[in-house]
Amino acid sequence: MLGLLINEMEQKEIEYLIKRELEELLLDLEDSRIDSVTKKSMRKRYQKLFQLLLRVANREECLPYIPARNI
């Protein structure tokens, strides 16, 4: 197990970066030009980033990013 000591401003910045990346992934997952193999990899990345978001953000801020069944 690893630990990380950050201040509140750094925590908010990490939270912001993760949210932006999740939003980009959601947009790309809706793109029909992207093949299914790539989308599968993107779904795995989304899951990992969401787990990170749960660690740095409160529950209310995570609600809009809860993965849907079709992700």
Rank of each mutant, 00 (worst) to 15 (best):
R45N: 08
E30M: 14
L5Y: 11
R55E: 15
V56I: 15
S36H: 03
Q47F: 08
N7I: 01
D28F: 00
E23A: 03
E60F: 09
L27Q: 08
I34P: 02
F50K: 06
E61L: 11
Q11D: 09
R43M: 03
L2P: 10
D31Q: 10
R59H: 14
G3W: 10
N70R: 04
P64E: 03
L29A: 00
L4T: 13
E13G: 07
R33N: 14
L4H: 09
E23Q: 13
S32Y: 07
M9F: 09
K40S: 06
E8I: 00
R69M: 03
L5E: 14
L5V: 15
T38E: 02
N7D: 14
Y46F: 11
D35K: 05
L49N: 07
L27N: 09
A57P: 12
L63Q: 03
L63K: 09
L52N: 07
V56R: 13
E30G: 05
N58D: 15
L25D: 02
I6W: 08
R59Q: 13
Y16V: 00
P64W: 01
L54G: 10
L22R: 01
L25C: 01
E8F: 02
Q11T: 09
K12E: 15
F50I: 09
L2I: 14
L5R: 14
I71S: 04
S36T: 08
D28N: 07
R59V: 14
D28A: 04
V56A: 13
V37K: 12
C62Y: 04
K48C: 04
E10L: 12
D31N: 15
L52T: 09
R33Q: 15
L25M: 07
L49A: 02
I34L: 08
E21Q: 13
E15P: 01
E21L: 05
T38A: 02
R69T: 01
L5D: 13
R59S: 15
N58S: 13
G3M: 10
G3D: 14
S41K: 14
R33T: 15
N58A: 07
C62G: 05
E8V: 07
I66P: 02
Q11I: 06
Q47N: 08
F50R: 06
R55Y: 13
N58T: 11
